[in-house]
Design a protein around this nucleic acid. Structure first.
Lengths: 267, 267
DNA sequence: GAGTGGTCTAGACCACTCC
DNA sequence: GAGTGGTCTAGACCACTCA
């Protein structure tokens, strides 16, 4: 039992998994390690909704048995998914599907911070000005990888902090994924908008790309954000993705930066 | 040798390392896993200059022997340091100390991208307008955790892309760390400024925090960036850190965003 | 072919949570 | 005490690089 365990070669249960398969296989064009294949399988279960946001996924031991690999291999797959913020590990309790609802941080993707740490941190007010359906403008359609003229939902809202308007957002969502989204639904919902998207429409935002610019406030911007015409505003164009790098939200935000700033970490 | 290896308890070579020590120790106030202690030891060797930027560090097997732990434990420590961009792993070759010089990406910390992918990617020109020594203003001193009145080096420069001025930077550095820094030295050096800091002054930038705002160009900004007075500019205040979270550079940048944008990834 | 990092396994034990 | 994730070890083998 000790000296001659001849081959640690990986099992074969995943023959149809990802690329060629386990090491000892062809290995020619695309070699994919076992844990990567496991990661893909877990990703599929997440995408298919087998485990819902906030729920626990099976324990590492169970997953190892299910996929016929060692616990260490499952562990490495889960480690990477946790590093990408798709799963959350909690020692002693289990591994959970990440969620935008019930989150400690109210706005996980909003990188705005106040100059003076706010005395009342929870003093954010959301004001929904508009929510309508229309045919996608060409640029919006292109960003969302839709055909020009497909239906989109357009939302306009303002965020107030400490009683002051700070963020003006225009948001576009694919119409077919967000049937029944109305300003009322948005207003009623407590918690982050992406939490509503998860629970009501089954759409999970997992990643986003932002492009930042400085622009001058036009008349509408100035009125809604209560600044002078021409005031410099931070323009934040966000493209948010769900599983499979599929874009599902385009957002054009204008931020007042007289009492707030956009924070970023480089490494 | 097989059935009864009674205790996998970790070795004791690190008694004086970090916190209380290995698991089986007190474990009361601060428990620190072995690989974290190894990580700290590697960090110290990096900080002390035992291995210089661009050089290979000892192989995992050698490190394991040196620290009297298993290769797997060294591996986990190195994995984390590689994830933090302090080390670079290259399969088959070794593990290398990260460097800002000889880097594939010219400006690792500059998050500016052109609207149209540039036909001539290398068409960046650096123009150094000023480099002087002075007593630190209070705000600069506070950011750099120096005493007000301590000497700092102040650098002003403009970056041009495709012949157009795009970035105006004001940079402050602790004077005692950058003796002999002149505009000429800056101009002569090929490659990123942080590469010069590494090779000439032994200062390695490993992390930075940025605060972004939209501001209006004043007269000087307008002249140097060749824009109208009052043009909205992206203000980027960067605080860069070396080992031990010590701040060593304050940088106030103004970016033209008419043909470029600041890119960011959220997850 | 030697040396390096990368993958995979099996098993032991520890820390944390909850019943 | 049972169950979960977290740490640590030892050993085998694979993929990559270079002489």
């Amino acid at each position: 039992m000790v000296p001659s365990s001849p081959s640690t070669a990986a099992p074969d249960a995943l023959a149809s998994a990802v690329g060629a398969g386990v090491p000892s296989a062809v290995s020619g064009p695309s070699f994919s390690p076992l844990y990567q294949q496991i990661k893909t399988l877990i990703l599929r279960s997440l995408q298919s909704g087998e485990w819902r946001p906030g729920e626990a996924i099976p324990s590492e031991i169970e997953l190892a048995a299910r996929f016929k690999v060692s616990q260490g291999t499952v562990r490495k797959a889960v480690d990477e998914l946790a590093a990408e913020n798709l799963l959350m590990r909690r020692q002693g309790k289990g591994t959970f599907v990440a969620t935008h609802a019930e989150e400690q941080v109210q706005y996980r993707f909003l990188r705005l911070a106040p100059d003076q740490p706010s005395p009342l941190p929870g003093s954010a007010r959301r004001e929904f000005l508009d929510c309508r359906r229309l045919r996608a403008p060409v640029d919006v359609a292109r960003s969302l990888q839709m055909k020009a003229g497909d239906m989109v939902v357009e939302v306009r809202r303002v965020l107030h902090f400490s009683g002051q308007p700070v963020v003006l957002d225009d948001i576009w969502l694919p119409g077919h994924m967000f049937k029944g989204l109305t300003a009322d639904r948005l207003s009623e919902y407590r918690g982050p908008m992406y939490g509503l998207f998860e629970s009501e429409f089954g759409v999970r935002m997992i990643r986003a790309e932002e492009k930042l610019r400085a622009v001058a406030a036009d008349e509408t911007d100035a009125r809604l954000l209560e600044v002078e015409l021409g005031t410099p505003l931070l323009s934040v164009e966000r493209l948010a993705f769900t599983y499979g790098d599929q874009p599902v939200e385009l957002r054009r935000g204008l931020y007042r930066t007289d009492h707030h700033f956009y924070r970023n970490e480089l490494s």
